[in-house]
Amino acid sequence: MSLTWLSRRLLLMAYTMLVVAVLVFAITQVLPADAAVTLLGQNATPAALLALRQKLGLTDPTWLQFWHWLWSLLHGNFGTSMRTGLPVGPTMFAALSRSLLLAACSILLMLVIAVPLGVLAALRRGSALDVFASLVSYLGISVPEFVTATFVLVVLADRLGWLPATGYVPLSQHFADGVRHLIAPVLTISLVLIAHVARMMRSETIDVLASDYVRAAQLKGLLRRTVLVRHVLRNALLPVVTVVALDVGYLLGGIIVVEEIFAIPGIGRELLIAIQNRDLPSIQAGALIMAGTYAVANLLADIAYALLDPRLRYD
């Protein structure tokens, strides 16, 4: 992986973000929301509305508005929320950090469960474990997360009373309680991830096990364990990186639903509230940040892929 590759990749990302910015701006332009009306209320006089519109720059030509908006974005200024009057950037990034914690825990849980499950299912094809893994996968893929979330809530929180139903406690405030609040949403999100990755892992492992190079590794007299870890796992994991990166896209969508159900003040919930309140700067910031997260996740996946697979070390 060379520096040229990396810089080209970063340039491409910047370009992607510019396109996203144009789209986000265009979409919010056609939304039936008038910032002046939102701010002053329905009973404001036309003169007051016009004055405010001029002050906000809403009477400027669209391209100039876009330019002003982009210029402040580049300076880290996402605007001021029309709902709270607070700067949008810090609110959104704080929400993002909570969502990222949720996502990171889900991905971690997924890796811990899905990778061994897929490998074991491949090693014991047709066994009870394999059937169980398939069942989990089909469930995870076919059941939407709002159903899973409800199920998790009813069983773990309501019937068994093991977990708090909803809400969010920062880990820095009360660690144990914070963890307890994370369990249900993490379970919900990771089920889908586990489904994807376990299936992928199973089929990849089966392919790699049948390969000549695994046979060659066995023929060297290596321990079965060594063959599995060094040769099978290492090669079977490669496509999983791609699946995880693609799943970040799913995560961003799924997290909106899950955060809403479990009342977690993450970026998804923040975006939803912004839309409900026609809070244009928050909508724009939320959409941009989500797109940015996706772009970064893809970049990270590409880098991980290049590090893991020498065939992809683009020169």
């Binding site: 000549d212 190079y213 695994v214 060659a216 023929l219 007299g221 290596l222 893991l308 020498p310 065939r311």
Partner: peptide
């Protein structure tokens, strides 16, 4: 025993295949 076999494989008996590129791990 599998331990004996591992000791013989690659050490006293070795093998080459028809598709050499497929027999090398890509990573």
């Amino acid at each position: 025993s599998s331990a004996r076999l591992r000791d013989i494989r690659g050490n006293e008996i070795a093998m080459v295949f028809q598709e050499p590129l497929a027999a090398l791990s890509p990573v």
